[in-house]
């Protein structure tokens, strides 16, 4: 009898020990093309996370600005992380406990944020941010980890560099050659009527073509350009954002403005190309008042 009881107790405790710590994640990670390391769920409907870093999140649209994995340590700057959750709505009937863990180059966790998604919460992404001002962060390789119910589900590295390192990157970075024109050849799609002086007129337009060289300087990082048109009063009258996603091989981007008399004033203007927040190219141009006869360039 005592032996039977003994075996019963031993087997029970063994079962307890074995069931303790049933991991819900595969031990072999999968690396996504964007370098997010995923620990896949054992169940097909398990939640997974794709990690994206950016410099800003638009407060109005939630759009991610300045995506990448390399950021410059600067006053008042931050790094945001967005973890897009897959299969999250298959589990919207219960509380989901996530942790976002920021780890410094010394492998020390310096900020941990717990996010509980309660039933009915419509969030499909988690966000967190850290300041990257020089008094708070040192340059180096950082790691961000996402945990679901205390189990690691995804991680991704990002790098903080100093301003001097950033300048070096910029120096050997993307170059932009701006061409302004009034027409586009309908057959070839190439600029026609290239100039820097344009006459304001009905149905008039200026088109800017920007040829990008050395795009690979930023690797496979998503590139965010801002094309800025500045009027004679020094104020921007039109700005356009162009995002080139990873894997995109585009080498030319463009923007155009209308130069009808009701919209533009004559004077000296400027066209600027920003990559993230850095001005990488600009070109001056002039708008002339429309004359009754032929437009004159001598004004």
């Amino acid at each position: 009898m005592i032996r039977q009881i003994l075996w019963f107790v031993v087997v029970t405790v063994a079962v307890e020990i074995l069931t303790t710590g049933c991991s819900e994640r595969a031990s072999e990670p999968v690396i996504l093309p964007d370098s997010t390391v995923i620990y896949p769920a054992k169940k097909a409907d398990g939640i997974s996370a794709k990690i994206t870093f950016c410099r800003k999140l638009s407060s109005k649209t939630g759009k991610r600005i300045g995506e990448g994995t390399v950021f410059t340590v600067m006053e008042t700057e931050s790094v945001y992380v967005i973890a897009d959750l897959e299969n999250r709505f298959l589990h919207s009937d219960r509380v989901l406990m996530f942790h976002i863990d920021w780890i410094d180059p010394e492998d020390k966790s310096f900020y941990q944020k717990r996010i509980d998604l309660i039933p009915g919460d419509s969030s499909a992404a988690l966000t967190s941010s850290i300041s990257i001002s020089p008094d708070k962060r040192l340059p180096g390789e950082y790691l961000l980890r996402i945990y679901l119910f205390r189990e690691l589900i995804a991680e991704k590295k990002f790098k903080l560099i100093t301003e001097s390192q950033a300048a070096l990157v910029r120096a050997r970075g993307i170059q932009a050659n701006i061409v302004l024109c009034s027409k586009v050849d309908k057959k070839t799609g190439k600029p026609a009527g290239i100039d820097t002086v344009f006459t304001i007129r009905e149905k008039g337009k200026i088109r800017a073509f920007i040829d990008l060289t050395n795009r690979q300087a930023y690797g496979d990082r998503e590139l965010t350009f801002r094309l800025n048109w500045i009027g004679p009063d020094g104020k921007s009258f039109y700005s356009k954002q162009v995002d080139l996603p990873r894997g995109d091989t585009t080498t030319t981007i463009n923007s155009s403005i209308s130069i009808t008399p009701d919209k533009r004033q004559p004077g000296k203007c400027l066209f600027q190309v920003y990559l993230f927040d850095d001005l990488i190219a600009e070109k001056k141009f002039e708008l002339l008042q429309e004359t009754k006869g032929k437009a004159s360039r001598e004004n």
Binding site: S23, S27, I103, S109
Partner: peptide, 18 residues
Amino acid sequence: WEQIDPLDPLVDTWGQFA
């Protein structure tokens, strides 16, 4: 232990959990 918060522990492997 450079990362773990004992009041809110996160583990990355079965060994660490155990």
